[in-house]
């Protein structure tokens, strides 16, 4: 299987060497923003980067596998273009945050990753999202399979009106899980840090739980089908601060095994939970574009683009 890696070296030639994914060598050293962004950005990301890319990229030396590689991804709803030519990697086993003001196409982009946009009449995607050597957007790739392997947690908790047990088992059932179902349910609930709260009332309706519990149930439900990537669309925006903290802790824990992409409105949240951050911004025609991508720490402490800095310092609202 062709895996893509991006290894970004300081002022080195673009490389495409396969490096062991397991060892995460934190380097932390960030170079100063180069004077000519375009050239250096292109050099930094190496072969994957489109030369026309306008977004700024931070150099970083951490060696990570890419879980998803976006190339010139555009999305349309009918004649309205929601996002325009985004190119960026999603690192494996990391939390990547998509931030930006309302209407900049964060959610649209997230929904491209597991083809949820297929369900909206008139929506279409252009470009390429590479996942395990295949283009996700290719109509020949089965959306159902994509969604099984790339799970999703939504803004508002949406448990099915079934028992807690059935909620977790649903995905596994339809996907023909042949193992021990009880064990899978327990395991998934444990990972979602919900087991201790619900283990005695698995027959209770999922709708009877509190909002935070419902959201963790939805995470457990997503885990149960054993996806490789979990997409989270503002998972804590409908929750109170305590429940939000729990979800954030959970995200950090889950990142050890899963690749997580999270859309968030909340800058502090992005800073707390994510390893990498992409800042998106809509232009005047309301078309979302990628402005800056890099390690979260760098984006927050040392943004290259003026607009990113404005947003992070709260000048966009």
């Amino acid at each position: 299987m062709a895996r893509n890696f991006f290894t970004v070296m300081r002022s080195s030639a673009p490389t495409r060497t396969a490096s062991p994914a397991s060892n995460q060598t934190p380097s932390g050293q960030v170079t100063a923003p180069p004077p000519n962004m375009k050239q250096d950005a292109a050099a930094g990301v190496g072969v994957h980067l489109d030369p026309n890319l306008e977004a700024v990229r931070h150099d970083f030396t951490e060696e990570v596998e890419t879980a998803l590689q976006l190339r010139n991804v555009s999305a349309f709803y009918g004649s309205f273009q929601a996002i325009d030519k985004m190119t960026m990697p999603i690192p494996r086993n990391r939390v990547t945050a998509l931030i930006g003001p309302s209407g900049c196409g964060k959610s649209t982009l997230l929904r491209c990753f597991n083809r949820m946009n297929d369900l909206i009449p008139g929506a279409r995607i252009e470009g390429e999202i590479e996942f395990e050597g295949r283009n996700l957007i290719d109509p020949n790739v089965d959306a159902v399979e994509v969604r099984r392997r790339i799970g999703m947690v939504f803004q508002k908790p949406n448990p099915f009106p079934k028992s807690i047990y059935e909620n977790v088992a649903f995905g596994a059932r339809i996907n023909g899980y042949s193992g021990d179902m009880d064990r899978l349910v327990e395991d998934s609930l444990r990972r979602a840090a919900l087991w201790d709260e619900v283990k005695d009332e698995l027959d209770k309706s999922g709708l009877a739980l509190s909002g935070g519990q419902q959201q963790r149930l939805c995470i457990a439900r997503a885990i149960a089908v054993q996806p490789e990537i979990i997409l989270m669309d503002e998972p804590a925006s409908a929750l109170d601060p305590v429940a939000t903290l729990k979800i954030e802790d959970l995200m950090r824990e889950l990142a050890e095994e899963y690749t997580i992409v999270v859309v968030t409105h909340n800058m502090q949240q992005a800073g707390r939970v994510s390893d990498y951050t992409a800042f998106l911004l809509a232009g005047e025609e309301r078309v979302g574009r990628l402005v800056e991508f890099g390690p979260t720490q760098d984006i927050f402490t040392n943004p290259i683009d003026q607009r990113t800095e404005d947003y992070i310092t709260g000048r966009y609202g």
Partner: peptide
């Protein structure tokens, strides 16, 4: 955590998509 991590080894899923 249970000992068997579901991602390890062959998954017992048969999605028959």
């Amino acid at each position: 955590m249970s000992a068997a991590t579901p991602t390890a080894g062959i998954t017992p899923y048969a999605p028959r998509i």
